[in-house]
Computed example of a mutant assay.
Amino acid sequence: MIADRKDDHVRFAAEQQRHLGGYNQFDDVSFVHHALAGIDRSDVSLATRFGGIEWQVPLYINAMTGGSAKTGAVNRDLAIAARETGVPIATGSMSAYFADESVAGTFSVMRRENPDGFIMANVNANASVEKARRAIGLLRADALQIHLNSIQETVMPEGDRSFSSWGPQVEKIAAGVDVPVIVKEVGFGLSRETVLRLQEMGVRAADVAGRGGTNFARIENDRRDHADYSYLNGWGQSAPACLLDAQGAGIPVLASGGVRNPLDVARGLALGAAAAGVSGQFLKTVLDGGVPALISQISAWLDQLEALMTALGAPTPADLTRCDVLIHGDLRAFCADRGIETRRLATRSSTHSTTHETIGSTR
């Protein structure tokens, strides 16, 4: 049954990507164009550092799948693309492995195909410390993702219905494993209050994983006999909203959820993220065009991100937090309601040091 569910998730997620609308709240973020801000391309580095972690690029393949023969093949292809492009990668939830060790190869294939890459194992917030260690050991993982998905579990016919233990268990795992712990949502976002709690728990970084990309409420609703929970399709906060909400929360943040192109990556970095993660876009590419298509796409994204940073005058990803940005539309309304002041973002290039301390200090 778990294998069937994993196959359903991939099928429905790919189908969503083929029908996603054009707009999401990344479009409510625009850079102020300064025609003399540009620098030399040779002075630009994509390397990023956060929470004691160093990556050569601020882009990663985020958690997707594993647990069946079909999803193991997807993980193999994703790992090859990660190896060839140098991007970090996360496996999908390893709950299937804990239930049936015979599917271990559908996850460990990532390390076999990408022996020197940065790989993140992925467990749910109910996992014991022992299971978290097993997941890390299977992949020889460099970091551990713990996913929070109460809305997905609520809509999932066979999902969990008890969530009170999640916070204490996250804290136990963070203290009980020997690799950095990154806590992520699955597409509904992390509020400032949640990010602050994660910081207190000893979590190394928070992946906001906001609304706008793969919608797991819709996926689980599609798996039900009747679409009982369709009213939850718009639940949660977008990645840009979460990034703005989390400024100054004292923990590095990562941007995922609805990242569609290199400009969205730059927008996420400009709002304080140390890196941006992509799932749905890359899943669609690898399913439709195979490994060569995904390698080509990731390579193009990295090249174009570097080009954008050159034009914006940002020699490093962290320097994008010094670029002037405007906040529009629904995102601006969210900020107003949450008491987030946005006008200073439009003129921060003239106050480099102050702005960098405010937004970049969590890197």
Rank of each mutant, 00 (worst) to 15 (best):
D4Q: 15
V10N: 00
S30G: 05
S30R: 12
V32T: 07
H34A: 01
H34K: 05
S42V: 13
D43V: 04
A47K: 15
I53K: 01
M64R: 02
G66Q: 02
A69S: 14
R76Y: 00
D77F: 00
E84M: 12
T85A: 06
A104H: 01
P115D: 10
A125H: 10
N126Q: 11
N126L: 14
K131F: 11
R134V: 00
A141K: 04
Q145W: 02
H147M: 09
S150Q: 13
Q152Y: 08
T154G: 07
V155Q: 07
E158L: 10
F163N: 06
G167Q: 12
K172W: 05
A174H: 02
G176N: 07
D178N: 15
D178R: 15
L190K: 08
G202T: 10
A205F: 03
G210N: 12
G213N: 06
N215S: 10
A217V: 05
N221L: 03
D225C: 06
D228Q: 13
Q237A: 15
P240R: 01
C242W: 09
V253W: 00
G268I: 04
L271G: 10
G277K: 04
G280Y: 07
A293K: 01
I295E: 14
S296T: 11
S299N: 13
S299T: 15
A300C: 09
W301G: 09
M309L: 09
A311R: 13
P315Q: 04
P315A: 03
R332G: 12
R338P: 02
A346H: 02
A346S: 15
T355D: 08
T355H: 12
T362F: 01
